[in-house]
Design a protein around this nucleic acid. Structure first.
Lengths: 340, 340
DNA sequence: CTGAAAGCGCTTACAG
DNA sequence: CTGAAAGCGCTTACAG
């Protein structure tokens, strides 16, 4: 295989200086059209492209962001929570359209967040996906702050906490979902998901759940607020427990579709009909929502917009521009599982 | 924010030469333990890490692979085919465990494959995912070959074609699935998916379908071999068409789970019972297989092994080592949708 | 085991 | 608009 051509080779072939080659190829304005053309021809002829590493070293512009996804094992070895699939797709799409490269990595739960990524100038900044536990979050923020590495997280929005400012309108989304259930005549609505400060997203959804009740003149029964992690298995187990205990309910609002799918499976296993006996509503709008039977009503998170906001906000942080808190609107998607 | 420290800063603080810092930090054997310790302490104190771009430029080792996923729109804007989620997760996991960075990009159908990635020394090699159309494949191979850029593709295995040598045991997998259906007493089994040279993976699955018939003394009815693209919508539409035409069948073997899920939805919509009236079998083992009702029997592709083979094979190509054709075993997963 | 020195392939002031 | 020159932050022969 031939040695890679350098800008000097192009310069020789085009009969100009190496500096001019660099200028022509980087699109600098100050190059005559004739020369630019000669340079391009020579580059094409030799199959030349800039050595990106030399460019990054010299120009100090990396033009790369890192996307760190936290590992999330489920029974199917997916490793990545399915909710992130469209989000990752959109991030790749949007970043690439802006000419930004994306470095991806899967982070073990106990790993040092981004310890490597920022420090080694691999990327200008980091997008964290799937770091929902607020407590573990705080422990690690310090390092990143100290090194001045720009980063954004999708999900929890907490005004007083550094860098937690991009997420969906969780409370509003949950409110519209539960309001819908109440309008259908449902009175005993289970809240499935962790409503604690550790997961502010879910806590917000809980507040939406509560507000919808209050507005309708209802008092949510604390016995219907079920704490559980967000896997299908947990959702299924939680519902079975409720049924075993003889708790009465006519609807389930789950903070994720995964939980909702688990809930439906348990209900059907126990011979209950969804939505006739129990309405079920999820959150996220996984593509699987339309695969299951009945199809799952849910609160859709807008991953396309989320991707744009994440990438743009990170870019602003990198450029030391001001950024603002962003709440991305959700959309209530009514399908079969809630009846009505 | 402070200027990033360089190896010279560490050298000064540790009282050694810059060259020694570089050696100590890159794990060279020839550094005394005492000095190594001093260097590490200094590096820690200044929060130093190597500038990866300088290292790449100087050492000519990039230590990065690019994963190019072809864009695949479905109704839910996933952008990435859900089959790739666990594969991507495993690639990230395995590459990272080997200390290799992963650059990801989504490629439009009409884009120049990897034109940029190899040429600009962003990555040592490329893993292509989702490039199933064999014809478009051949058109682009030339460029990559010419530049000597190492790359691998997951999916089609065609001995006579450059770089198409990593995939699942498609024929065997399909054979075991269809054999199972036949053993259940099914006689008129629909083949759903494109059986053409354009998609050799699917064609191999077709051959497995045919072989299972022949071995059982059956002749597959050509009217049951349905050509269609691999989306849920196509699967649903194909089955509806068959029903409209009054074609008799008692089982469906689909070349992807997506197709199978679509098929099940159509069958149920028409009042047919799966598996009582029609058995359905898919291929891939998407996590959604266990979300649907009935749960979908399928041929599981081993994405964990596939990821290792892809990464290791690419590494071998990069190092100019010999590589071999690899057929990854599949596993028949029996769930509710095939009955029996 | 360690240091002095060269150089990876670019970008970008500085002149003209 | 173009060229000569410096230098980004490392790695790695070459000596000792």
């Amino acid at each position: 295989m031939m040695k890679r051509p350098t800008s000097f080779d192009i310069a020789a072939l085009a009969g100009v200086s190496q500096a001019t080659v660099s200028r022509a190829l980087s699109g600098a304005a100050s190059v005559s059209e004739a020369v630019r053309q000669r340079v391009f021809d020579a580059a094409t002829q030799l199959n030349y492209t800039v050595d990106i590493n030399a460019r990054k070293l010299r120009s100090k512009k990396i033009n790369t962001i890192a996307v760190l996804v936290s590992e999330d094992f489920d029974q199917s070895d997916n490793r990545i929570n399915p909710f992130f699939l469209p989000l990752i797709g959109s991030i790749l799409d949007y970043a690439n359209s802006k000419g930004v490269d994306v470095l991806m990595s899967l982070q073990k739960a106990d790993a040092d967040w981004g310890a490597d990524y920022g420090f080694s100038r691999r990327a200008d900044g980091i997008i964290f996906l799937g770091y929902r536990d607020f407590e573990s979050y705080l422990r690690r923020v310090a390092v990143l702050q100290q090194v001045g590495e720009p980063w954004v997280v999708f999900g929890p929005v907490m005004p007083k906490t550094p860098n937690l400012f991009i997420g969906s309108q969780n409370q509003e989304g949950a409110h519209s979902a539960v309001e819908h259930l109440i309008k259908l005549g449902r009175k005993r609505i289970v809240f499935l998901g962790e409503a604690s400060e550790h997961h502010s997203e879910f806590f917000e959804r809980f507040r939406g759940y509560r507000r919808a009740h209050v507005e309708a003149g209802l008092t949510p029964d604390p016995a219907l607020a079920i704490d559980c992690f967000i896997s299908r298995e947990e959702g299924a187990a939680a519902i079975e427990r409720l049924l075993d205990e003889g708790v009465q309910f006519d609807a389930v609002f789950a903070v994720t579709d995964l939980l909702a799918i688990g809930a439906i499976q348990s209900l059907q296993k126990r011979g209950l009909h969804v939505p006739k006996d129990v309405s079920v509503m999820g959150f996220d709008d996984l593509w699987a929502c339309t695969c299951i039977n009945p199809t799952l009503s849910t609160v859709r998170q807008d991953t396309t917009t989320a991707a744009r906001v994440l990438v743009d906000t990170l870019a602003a942080l990198i450029d030391n521009e001001p950024v603002e808190m962003t709440r991305i609107p959700t959309q209530l998607v009514i399908r079969e599982s809630c009846g009505g």
